[in-house]
Amino acid sequence: MALRIHISERQRRFGAELRRLREGAGLAVKDAGALVGMGGPQLSHIEAGRTGLDPDRLTVLLDAYGHTDETYAAALHRMGLSNGKGWWSAFKGFVNASALDLAEAESTATALSSYETLLIPGLLQVPRYSEVILSGDEKKVAFRRSRQQVIDQGGAVPFHAVIHEAALHTRFGGPNAMRDQLDHLVEVSELPHVTIQVLPFRCTDYVSTGTPFMIVHGPHRDLDTVLTEHPGGTSYLSEQAEIDVYQSKFERLKSFALPALDASRPLRSRVEHDSWGLIQHLRYTL
């Protein structure tokens, strides 16, 4: 079988999980390969994501590695069997590979946790806002709109967003577009599986992160992934220690942010500052 030239994040992660399990079991790559009738170099290619592994051999390796968690094993089998195709495949060549990887990861997520500093999260953007962010690229705007199906009522993947107040003060697309964007945040927050909080300027605690990130929660905790955005592009983090750091950061962000958007609460009951009140204030200043 020819080795892959382009390795998707899912393929890379599948191989990385096999390597992590093998090393945890204390087996050398040549010894593990021998268990499934292949040489060490061939198993190394699999662990690097350059080629796949059939389900029967995966089962043998999981047994040899002493991994008995059925939920994890089933998720790893699905990851290895996936052909990587989905609605995002139609956008290949129009958006970068990292974006395609993100869409594929979101499609199998059990929950999503997002922190944004200067922009509204892509899953919550209205078209006019996205058009400015994406320089009017119709394909990229359509791709972003398609991504949003993951939190539509039908998909119902739990989504929790913490948005820095700075993102609400920008007026990408002009006052009318930003007004539509703020209205959309209120509307989508009414979905039972969507939670939106605003981290206000007046927050006096330091959360030690100025980097936007999203935690893509997998079908098993060991398969969670963190995406970080930086000038050089998007990075995918999968080491458990790294994920724990960002999970802790997100919990702190939630605790420092204003209470979640809840348009159903009567005005008279809003004795404290909350995300809904701040958004309404900003809306009427546009």
Rank of each mutant, 00 (worst) to 15 (best):
S146G: 14
D205R: 09
D101T: 10
P127Y: 04
V141A: 04
L168C: 07
P127I: 08
H184M: 04
F213A: 06
T225D: 01
H193C: 03
A103K: 07
T170A: 13
L100H: 04
P200K: 05
G210P: 00
L118T: 13
T204V: 15
G174A: 11
V157I: 15
T117Q: 05
H217L: 01
E116N: 04
A105K: 04
V157Q: 03
N176E: 15
P127R: 14
A142N: 09
S113E: 15
A97V: 13
S238W: 12
G174S: 08
V132G: 00
L223T: 11
M178A: 03
T225I: 14
P121I: 10
L119T: 11
E165F: 09
G233S: 11
Q197W: 01
R171I: 12
A111D: 04
S238C: 10
K140W: 02
L237M: 09
L102E: 02
K139Q: 15
T108L: 03
A103T: 12
D137W: 09
V207K: 03
A142W: 03
E106S: 06
A142G: 03
S146D: 15
G232Y: 10
F201M: 10
D205Y: 04
P158C: 04
P192D: 03
L134P: 04
A156Y: 00
A167Y: 03
R128Y: 01
I196K: 01
F159S: 05
V132D: 02
V150I: 15
A90E: 14
G122A: 08
G93M: 15
S208L: 14
V198S: 05
V157A: 02
H160F: 15
D183V: 07
Q125C: 13
G173I: 12
S208K: 14
E131V: 06
A156E: 02
A103Q: 07
A142V: 07
D137P: 05
A166F: 07
G233Y: 11
V132M: 01
I163V: 15
E106L: 08
E106P: 02
L227F: 08
F91A: 06
A177P: 01
L237W: 05
I151R: 00
I133R: 06
L199W: 05
A167S: 06
L112D: 06
H164R: 11
Y236W: 15
A166C: 04
T195V: 11
R171E: 09
T225N: 03
T170L: 06
S130N: 08
P127V: 13
T204H: 14
S189K: 02
G210E: 07
N96C: 09
T225P: 00
E131F: 05
A105V: 05
G122W: 01
L112Q: 08
A177C: 09
T110E: 12
K139C: 04
E165W: 08
G232H: 12
P200Y: 06
V126H: 01
P219R: 14
K92I: 14
S98I: 02
E104T: 03
C203W: 02
V150F: 08
Y129I: 10
H184G: 02
D205K: 07
Y115W: 12
D152F: 07
A105N: 06
G218K: 11
